[in-house]
């Protein structure tokens, strides 16, 4: 059992039962294994001395990333002794025998112990990740806007490039090169630009991912990864980039081949 206490007054002093101290707190105090500390519950007056039996690293938990509270772990009876309520816990973790049905067990426990709520670990994980689903939705929305902006940018670039080659297109049209060939050439160019840009984008993304993880990892003192550049993301981003190139090139090409060749000489 572990519990996080938000503010535990810890002072060096020689005494007894063991306590585990989170690495960050141990560094902050500083305290090391064998040191004695005094713990007092916030708002309470009872104090008790503990010996630092070990130092642990807090499990990376995205839910608690923004909170700077430290963690210490007591033996349950030691903690209970310091709290006004005895024989009381916040929750139990139940390990099931192999083959047991978690759902049926949960309902059985609820019927047995009135007022308890039993969750499967997956349900709990799902509930506790609401924050990240929201962040994810937010990122998706921002991603859409970015996609729109880059699509427009690429289209604009292609229109300008194609505009700049009006005399060439005019000449090609006048010597009989088909519209289809011209469209294909323009689209190929746009796809090439988009593909090269996608490769650059992936490289930039890798650098940015590294930067974000390094920065936020140090900022929150955690091993959590804030950005992940997975193969799936690379494939999706590159495909979107190429698709944008295809659309932008196609639109720009269609725009130019619809102009009669004799008018392509006009500026």
């Amino acid at each position: 059992m572990f519990i996080a206490l938000l503010g535990v007054l810890l002072l060096p002093l020689p005494v007894d039962p063991g306590i585990l101290v989170e690495r960050r707190l141990a560094e902050e105090l500083p305290a090391s294994v064998g040191d004695t500390v005094i713990a007092r519950v916030l708002g309470g007056t009872a104090e008790r001395a503990f010996v630092v039996a070990g130092i642990f690293e807090r499990a990376p938990d995205p839910n608690r990333i923004a909170r700077n509270d430290y963690e210490v772990r007591f033996h349950l009876p030691d903690l209970e002794q310091m709290l006004p309520d005895h024989d009381r816990v916040d929750r139990f973790a139940i390990e099931l025998r192999s083959g047991a049905d978690p759902e049926a067990t949960a309902r059985w426990v609820e019927s047995l112990a009135f007022g308890t709520q039993v969750y499967e670990s997956v349900t709990l994980a799902d509930r506790s990740s609401t924050t990240f689903r929201v962040v994810s939705r937010f990122h998706d929305a921002i991603g859409l806007v970015t996609l729109l902006a880059s699509g427009i940018f690429l289209l604009c670039l292609m229109v300008i490039r194609v505009d700049g080659r009006r005399p060439d297109v005019r000449t090609m049209r006048l010597i009989g090169v088909s519209r289809r060939t011209i469209v294909s050439a323009v689209v190929a160019e746009a796809v090439l630009i988009a593909a090269v840009a996608s490769v650059l984008g992936v490289a930039m993304g890798a650098v940015l991912t590294f930067g974000v993880n390094t920065y936020f990892g140090a900022y929150y003192d955690t091993t959590l990864r804030f950005a992940i550049l997975s193969p799936r993301i690379v494939v999706v981003a590159a495909s979107l980039g190429v698709a944008l190139g295809l659309i932008a090139g196609g639109l720009a090409a269609v725009r130019i081949v619809r102009v009669p060749p004799q008018r392509l000489g006009e500026r």
């Binding site: 609401t130 924050t131 929201v134 939705r137 937010f138 929305a141 921002i142």
Partner: peptide, 8 residues
């Protein structure tokens, strides 16, 4: 975007 974030 606010509507999305307010579901926190």
């Amino acid at each position: 975007l606010d509507q999305i974030l307010l579901t926190f």
